[in-house]
Design a protein around this nucleic acid. Sequence first.
RNA 1: GCUCCGGUGGUGUAGCUCGGUUAAGCAUAGCGGCCUUUCGAGCCGUUGAUCGCGGGUUCAAAUCCCGCCCGGAGCACCA
Length: 504
Amino acid sequence: MVGEPVTRIRSEQEERKLPPLPSRDRYKEIRTRFAPNPNSVLHLGSSRPAILSHDYAAQYGGKFILRFEDTDPRIKRSDLKFYDYIREDLRWLGCEWDEEYIQSDRMKIYYEYAEAAIKGGSAYVCTCPQEKFKELTLASKACPCRGLDTKEQLWRFREMVEGGYKEGSAVLRVKTDLDHPNPAVRDWPAMRIIDPASHAHPRVGSDFRVWPLYNWASAIDDHLMGITHIIRGQEHTTNAVRQMYLYAAFGWEYPTTLHCGRLTIEGGSLSKSEIEKGIRERAFDGYDDLRLGTLVALKRRGIEAQAIRKLVYELGVKPSDAVISWDNLFSINRKLIDGVANRYFAIIDSPVRLMISDYPYSETTVQLKKHPDRAETRHITVKKNGQDLELWVERSDIERIGKGNEFRLMGLANAVIAEVDPAVAKFTGNDVSAARGKQHIHWLPISDHLELELINWENELQHGMIETNVASEQAGSHVQLERKFFAVVEKAEAGKVKLIYTSA
RNA sequence: GCUCCGGUGGUGUAGCUCGGUUAAGCAUAGCGGCCUUUCGAGCCGUUGAUCGCGGGUUCAAAUCCCGCCCGGAGCACCA
């Protein structure tokens, strides 16, 4: 599991460190956590807190914790498959975790602290209708339940747990400050009832009817797990304020928080709910549908995890949202894949047969480098059919070069265009040096090539042809179609080659 | 409406906490050029922001103060 990629990440981190972590000196060991709800897969936006949390822990020799927050079996219900999908996404991102927790396994803990908070007078069971509570709280007034004595509160809480209250009729609240300028902070809800009969939890079934809300479970876990730094989205800034009241009540020290803005990609990276909806309704083929901003889709398109990491480093921990451009991501990615992508000739846009007259050889095998920086070679053989040599080339190339101009068929020969349409050229020699400064174009033998299926940037299927050498590529490897673009191999078999466009 | 948080060239950021040799750095895009046993990749160069707006403090402000404008987040018995 800790193979070569991780080594690469380590050296990458040395090359480009994150800015110093605030108040790092207050803790003997830095402990961070990433806490997703397993109700969908990870997307580009999730990678920001995930990478920052993981890498900050790594940078200071600390621990990174993965915590599944699956405490809503009703509205944001989790699904068994996502626990594993998220683990896979995280591994791919290079965010291996040191400890893992699942909140639905920790229900007893949340109950215990609930009773402790009630006994300590910092929490109470509220049976007011939501509307009425809101009305009171907006007026900075206490609801009738707030003042009930501890014994009564405890009895009420046990009633919640044992089924004395119906779903929605009672909630555990944390006492804060009814005069707090932000009404959202006043006596926030900590635990509520969800009818287990109609909303079974995917992992623990119908064992519980009282479930913690985000602020309760998260606050208690962060303390119990010794989290020193919480790095999460800015939508949680108010939650930090809320939770501090609980921490104060228990005499705990609240972790240092870093809130970062949303990270989306231009053209609208989709939200979790949109992704789920689209997949349910079959608007998308799956989580790796190229139109999605999910990690699996980005991976499939040929974006390296390392590119995402670099991007996140570039963005830093600013609280403002960032809409990054594909160009930006591609550019970072290109630097990573350029060194590994083997080169091949492919003709997609406008194949045209070019007739080359006076070609002196009946058969020629050219040797080309698989990659300009490496010695490995690939070979293409062309055969004359009768008098002339025929090749596939791109019509646009012939048109651009124009009649009467000399050009170079890369690795093969020099020629002068005699006619653009139909495309005819006259052989002028083999010497590369004679083609200095001339246009170099790629080509393919008339019969010896493979059919190519390409999923282009617009997510459309395009047909073309590609040199046979590509058949030796593994699925998932990067290739560059010379003079055209980078792509990922989805399938490379003798009969059919399927590529996915990555970027220019 | 209320509570927070932001606003630097087309885009994303650095610098702003301890205001002055950086009157604004980096990346990307744009533009121009170079290379060639052979890519529009790469390499090199270059255009581009007076730092949201207005005022104030100061010898000096992107950096401090005030007002305004704009944007985002939150205001769920979601996470």
